[in-house]
Design a protein around this nucleic acid. Structure first.
Lengths: 108, 108
DNA sequence: GAGCTAACCATAGTAAGACTATGGTAGTCT
DNA sequence: AGACTACCATAGTCTTACTATGGTTAGCTC
């Protein structure tokens, strides 16, 4: 049983994946998220590629067409400095929000 | 500096508030969330009331017009059994998703 | 070489949800 | 009278994650 990506967290997941993996193509990012979470989170292609486009526009990543090891053409994404800053900000905001939510739902 | 309600968590916050407070009106729910989180989370009225309407339709809560202590008219919401089940399910799904996300963003 | 699968990319269209903006009623206090 | 607080509600906007769809190409099997 898998879980949909919680709205508002996709950018953070992608940014963190790129921070870890370095230059990586969309498919690789999706695989990484799926594997790390043990198939709990699965990013659909229809979510991922539009998100990457938006991130390009925002200047958080840059892209470059290259060959994969399998000789396929793929678009490799890399974090920009703005993307790194965004990642830090998103994680901080996320932790802050989660701590607050926990204060509400913690009382059994 | 306040944080917007993370999308997808509002139902859970409302359900939990009602579980704690018993019958309560919208304004009281909003106040409770704001106070418990130390003003980190603030539910806007334009989010809260539509959410309550949807929850009525889903059968998670029932509503009743009553007088407040201040002699104002207010709509008091109460959890239904379906609402209690929904709360449990939402909390479980939330924890599951958060654990997965943490697995992605944890690696420093 | 035909057909299949996996590895890749992309867009259009839909639905959901949280917001801003707006507007209303009715007590209480000055 | 006016202002403020306590309450409710809706319309409209924006963002985002999804489904559905469609495409290309490498490598494998038959």
């Amino acid at each position: 049983m898998r879980t949909e990506i919680p709205p508002g967290t996709l950018y953070m997941l992608i940014l963190k994946s790129l921070a870890l993996l370095g230059a990586q193509h969309g498919y690789g990012i999706a695989l990484h998220i799926q594997q790390v979470t043990g198939d709990v989170l699965q990013v659909e292609e229809g979510s991922l590629y539009p998100a990457l486009q938006r991130m390009l526009l925002k200047g958080w990543v840059k892209a470059e067409w290259r060959q994969t090891e399998n000789k396929r053409r793929a678009r490799y994404y890399t974090l920009t400095p703005a993307g790194r800053k965004q990642l830090v900000a998103e994680v901080r905001e996320f932790e802050r929000a989660m701590a607050a939510i926990r204060r509400v739902i913690q009382p059994v």
